[in-house]
Amino acid sequence: MNKNCIIAGVGGQGILTIAAIIDIAAIKHNLFVKQAEVHGMSQRGGAVESHIRISDSEIFSDLIPSGQADCIIATEPLEALRYVPFLKKNGMIISAQKPFINCDNYPEEEKLFSELKNYSSIIVDAEKLALQNGSIKATNTVILGAAAPFLDIPETLFAEAISHFFAAKGKQIVSMNISAFNDGLAYSKKN
């Protein structure tokens, strides 16, 4: 088993939270993990990405070779589209619906979504589902939930990983995130 996954977003959106929870779940599943991330200059509102590789055998490259990603998980649609050259021919895009616009020439949303439709994609209104669970801060856990069916890790391990990751923030935050995750998961299964 091996899964390659690109997490994409804008510096400050918290893509490393998504990455960290997948890491924990994968380790709980006794898999090898490699996760390359971006620090430094791009964190200031620039495009950021993380390559996650999970496998039951040794992983060599920290970077996913182009055309080899099983999925792209994005916190906003333009960043989802940025990494399609990494996506396998039958790969999956899971993206939050709401654009993050911090540049003047952001593409027209209609064009953006019509291009995304050229791929197998799940576009989730993560912010709405997060708010329904009590806080916009759970947006990334909704996205993770929507991506979970494509990662080959048992769903229960994600719940454990979320509990582990948010443990220091208290029970309420943990249960809110688990519920947000489940909503993302349900949305993904329905679509």
Binding site: V10, G11, M41, S42, Q43, R44, G45, G46, A47, L78, E79, L81, R82, N102, C103, N105, Y106, P107, E108, K111, L112, E115
Partner: peptide, 9 residues
Amino acid sequence: IVIPRPPSL
């Protein structure tokens, strides 16, 4: 249609 998104202050 993908444009670069450079960092900013």
